[in-house]
Amino acid sequence: MLVSFRRLRRCQCVQLMTTCLVLSLVMVYWEQLDNNVVSHVKSVSFRYLVNRFSLVNKSLTIPREQALIFSNFPYLLNHPKICKNQDVLLLLFVKTSPENIQRRKAIRSTWGNQTYIQESLGVTVKVLFVLGATVASDSDSLDPQEQLKFEDKLYSDLIQQGFSDSFHNLTLKLLMQFHWMHHYCAHARFFMTADDDIFVHMPNLVQYIQDVHSKGITDLWVGRVHRGSPPVRSQTSKYYVPYSMYQWLSYPDYTAGAAYVVSSDVADKIYHASLTLNASLYIDDVFMGICANAVGVSPQEHVFFSGEAKAPYHSCIYSQMMTSHGHVEDIYDLWKTATRPQVKVEAPGLIGKLYCSLVKVALLCRPYYVNTYPCKAAFS
């Protein structure tokens, strides 16, 4: 009897210690748990059960005169006639920062080479770099703005407005793009925005949008789609959004801002929506989703638009690649390798397709999450 009592007390002590340990861990990680798990549960519930994004539109609607403060910045560099009298298939804006000179140079020499696109692909694609203003520091030997003017004199492809170029002004940079297209290149059939560390497989992209255009498809907004994403409430995150800026549990559906494509009719709708919406929310891809939701446009998933990671390096991937994220130093090698004519014919026939399917399954369907192409891309 005494032995049983001692065992009972020992078991109770173990249970008590285990409970204390679990509670301690929960208390330590509660904030992270709340931000990452609970917020996602709330967001998905709001997105799929409540789904009252009309309240979001209403809460962010402001008078036109008030909305002008987000877009009424003077142009420091501009080329208003660059699209004039030209049959533009795609107007492609690259979001860049003043100091990223080498990134712009690399893009001009690879996938953004407009001469190559015109001569090899037979279409007109206008590639323009959009940026805000920079401030000279005491350590600068040359005025950064003068450097930009010199660069623009060489290439005539910089579009710059007078707001400060910073992460918290990305939405202003987005508005700048849609306003510029509306005023100076509204006849372009498609619009695309991309980061300056994105690789675009231009031959594949041109073929895709030509097919879309030939089918007369409208209301096109395609990219890597985020559905039911919650606002980040952790103040340590660069994506932190306070309740005062956005009070709702979930964002409307949107595509990753790294790269996406819209048809010209959608670009026009987004422009008009932006004229009456509060653009103080500095997460630009989310603001795009808010504008699109206001005019009834939904994003469409394309499995070969990358998220935040690089696509695997393999010819079976290159044959369908649209975009890949995170390329700076390797952009020259990737361009040379991914656009070789042999890529399309290296694995012909049924055996070749089976081989590429197996390769894509091995590369994309890993047991842990990789934010590049989804597993279903292996079967497309």
Rank of each mutant, 00 (worst) to 15 (best):
S244V: 03
M245S: 09
M245Y: 05
M245G: 00
Y246F: 13
W248S: 04
W248V: 01
W248L: 07
L249Y: 09
L249D: 11
S250I: 01
P252R: 06
P252G: 06
D253M: 00
D253P: 00
Y254H: 09
T255G: 05
T255L: 07
T255E: 08
A256K: 07
G257T: 14
A258D: 06
A258T: 10
Y260L: 03
Y260N: 09
Y260D: 02
V261A: 00
V262Q: 02
V262Y: 02
S263R: 00
V266L: 05
D268H: 08
K269Q: 08
I270H: 05
Y271E: 04
Y271F: 14
Y271W: 12
Y271P: 03
Y271N: 07
Y271K: 06
A273K: 02
L275S: 04
T276F: 12
T276Q: 11
L277D: 09
N278Q: 10
N278L: 08
A279H: 10
L281P: 02
L281W: 07
L281A: 06
Y282V: 04
Y282N: 11
I283N: 05
I283Q: 07
I283H: 03
D284P: 07
D284N: 12
D284M: 09
D284Y: 10
D285E: 13
V286I: 13
F287Q: 13
F287A: 05
F287K: 07
M288L: 14
I290E: 12
I290N: 09
I290M: 09
I290F: 11
C291H: 10
A292L: 11
A292F: 06
N293K: 08
A294N: 13
A294T: 13
A294G: 08
V295Q: 12
V295E: 10
V295I: 13
V295L: 11
G296H: 14
G296D: 13
G296F: 12
V297Y: 04
V297D: 04
V297R: 03
S298E: 15
S298P: 06
Q300N: 14
Q300I: 14
Q300K: 10
Q300W: 10
Q300A: 15
H302R: 10
H302E: 10
S306H: 03
S306V: 05
S306Y: 02
E308M: 12
E308D: 14
E308Y: 12
A309G: 06
A309N: 11
K310F: 01
A311D: 02
P312K: 10
H314W: 15
S315W: 15
S315E: 13
I317V: 15
Y318F: 15
Y318M: 12
Y318I: 07
Y318V: 04
S319Q: 14
M322D: 01
T323W: 02
